[in-house]
Each structure stands twice: as structure tokens, then as C-alpha cells.
């Protein structure tokens, strides 16, 4: 039990992202309403973003902006003083792309609503079977 508690204290950031991702996955699988499925998809994206950002953390480091940097490197820069900028860069673009894909998903949902008059998945399925 002590091992498990120690494990949890050192890696609980991963546990949080796993729980979030599973909530999103459950919503995508179970929910009947298409908008709720889209929200589930977005929760999965948020979980991935949280995972990447938590990877970038370093103990005792500060934000990845070189202090007094505009003077042009008069002092040595140590990598241990700044957190890892790479996950931030990747997630910065991923957030905007997530918004854009959310727009596409919602416009597909609008089209489906115009076609079938409902966003409930089982109603759509019975309508397509009748045709």
C-alpha cells in the first residue's frame, strides 16, 4: 500500500489525465446525443493537452522566456532553469486546431439536424432504416 501511495504522489498528473480521457471516451461511446458526443471528444482533447503540458514541467524551473534576454546572451543560459518549451508549442497549435475541428463537427451536426430533424442517434438510425 505504501508503494501505491508513493506511486500516486509522484505520478498523479498522469492519473488525472487518464480519468479525464476516460470520461471523454465514455461520453463518445455511450451518449445518444451527437452534441454530447462532440463534447466528449473535446474532453479527450483537453486530457491530451493536460498530459503534454504536465510532461513539460521541471522542478525549480520557471517559464520558458529567457530572463534579460534582449541584451543578447551576456550570461550563460542553463536548460535546467527553464521548463521544457516543446510541449507548450505543440499544445498551443493543438488548442486552436481543436477549436477549428470543433467548428467542423458542429457544422456537421447542424447539417444532420437539418436532414433528420433530430440529433438523437437512435432516432437517426430508425429513420435511415425506414428509408
Amino acid at each position: 500500500m505504501g508503494d501505491l501511495a508513493k506511486e500516486f504522489v509522484t505520478t498523479y498528473n498522469y492519473w488525472v489525465y487518464i480519468i479525464l480521457m476516460m470520461i471523454g471516451l465514455y461520453a463518445v461511446m455511450v451518449k445518444n446525443n451527437l452534441v454530447k458526443k462532440i463534447i466528449g471528444m473535446n474532453i479527450v482533447q483537453t486530457a491530451i493537452i493536460l498530459f503534454f503540458i504536465s510532461i513539460g514541467a521541471k522542478r525549480g524551473a520557471t517559464i520558458p522566456i529567457i530572463a534579460h534576454g534582449h541584451n543578447g546572451g551576456e550570461h550563460a543560459v542553463h536548460a535546467a532553469d527553464y521548463i521544457n518549451p516543446l510541449p507548450h508549442v505543440l499544445m498551443l497549435t493543438a488548442i486552436v486546431v481543436a477549436v477549428a475541428t470543433l467548428g467542423v463537427a458542429l457544422s456537421l451536426a447542424i447539417k444532420i439536424y437539418q436532414e433528420y430533424g433530430t440529433l438523437e442517434e437512435d432516432d437517426i438510425r430508425t429513420q435511415t432504416r425506414e428509408e
Binding site: 498528473n13 521541471k58 543578447g72 516543446l86
Partner: peptide
């Protein structure tokens, strides 16, 4: 969590941090 020696922080990111200026 927040280990400075983690693999993600040891390969390419130190290059970015030290050479950006």
C-alpha cells in the same frame, strides 16, 4: 512529475533553451 531528468526534457529541448538567443 516535474522531474528535470525526464526523457522529454533531456534530448532536444535543452538545445532550444540554450541556443534561442
Amino acid at each position: 512529475w516535474s522531474d528535470p531528468e525526464s526523457p522529454a526534457s533531456t534530448h532536444v529541448s535543452p538545445y532550444y533553451i540554450e541556443h534561442t538567443i
